[in-house]
Design a protein around this nucleic acid. Structure first.
Lengths: 187, 187
DNA sequence: AAAAACTCAGACAAACTTGTCTACCTGACT
DNA sequence: AGTCAGGTAGACAAGTTTGTCTGAGTTTTT
């Protein structure tokens, strides 16, 4: 589990990333994190003022990892429509790789009805970045659009997000396939 | 908080329903439930073998309540297309009434990565019933369909479910409005 | 009348929770 | 030589968690 050559801070964050996502935020204790990260408790609280702050960094990391994966998938793909389709395929791979863990942002929200401002803002920021990806692609698309750019992008984003969640629930890729079919209907 | 004339079992379930949804399943303790329900701990464990079993009953109750609300919304609405649109409006009302609590089934899944079989089965059953509603409406729709019934119904279900989740995240109805726009594009 | 179902209050076990604090150590920079 | 960033181990506080159990009392059914 321990990854060599990682600073203590990175070791903590990497371990928290794994445990928060695999077990859930509320079910993961600070003690388990420091134990599995192989660091002292004071070290955790030296780098992260609280579990809540660690959660915010976790959310940032999740977005960074997703973004990296997506960029790899989209390298050499120019056509906007093709980029949208590829992003759904990227999501499918992500879901399989994570054993259908679903969207980490959504899950954090679901776990914390009494959302803190910090966590709320980070989740919204991450979601908005995902939404903007679709906005950008639709904007780039040629052809006279009969519907507004944002309406189409938002619809695709809803399908993307909805399918991610349903894949988690059903532990199967079929919702993502259905979402892709719907996207093709809309485009 | 206490509702008169309810049996002890119903009092417990009603309180659990409120607390699980408002605070989350993991953050709601048995002790809080019995305290707010005004019953003894032994009474809870007499009616529900475990917190997990209580959760299953909670999920059943949530579906029953949603189903009742939906039926009230759809009374006197015959046209399948209109019934679909009304179901989205019903969801909007539901979300506002629950202060954007989102979908209880989804949230339970999000909170419990190590899903028990009982809970998993109940969530799937509830979700499938919701999906079947859309299947039924599409089936009833006249006109030569260029796409398969299930593909269209699944797309609408994805939008419905995705919008419910996004409304929870954004604490706003705009995703549901976007979903409805998308549905109208598809129909 | 007897039995069964239901309800109460609360102690108890054995664990876990976040965060603080003491006390110490190492290495780098000024 | 001195300061400070970064690290160790672990005790501690004050609370929480689910579930069991004792022991009693009431209500309903047979």
């Amino acid at each position: 589990m321990l990854i060599a050559d990682l600073s203590v801070r990175e070791q903590i964050l990497e371990t928290a990333n794994r445990l928060f996502y695999e077990q859930g935020y509320n079910l993961t204790g600070i003690n388990q994190i420091i134990e599995e990260a192989g660091v002292a408790k004071a070290s955790l609280y030296y780098h992260f003022p609280s579990k809540e702050d660690l959660c915010v960094e976790y959310l940032k990391k999740r977005y960074k990892n997703w973004s990296t994966l997506l960029q790899r998938f989209l390298a050499n793909v120019e056509d906007p429509k093709e980029r949208i389709i590829k992003s759904f395929e990227c999501r499918s791979k992500y879901l399989v790789d994570t054993h259908f863990g679903g969207c980490s942002y959504t899950r954090i929200i679901a776990e914390m009805p009494q959302r803190s401002v910090k966590i709320n803002d980070q989740v919204i920021a991450n979601k908005e970045k995902q939404r903007m990806f679709f906005i950008e692609q639709i904007k780039k698309m040629k052809g006279t659009r009969t519907v507004a750019v944002s309406d189409l992008a938002n619809a695709i984003f809803l399908l993307f997000d909805g399918a991610t969640m349903q894949c988690q629930v059903y532990r199967d890729l079929h919702p993502m396939k259905n979402a892709l079919k719907a996207v093709k209907m809309l485009l």
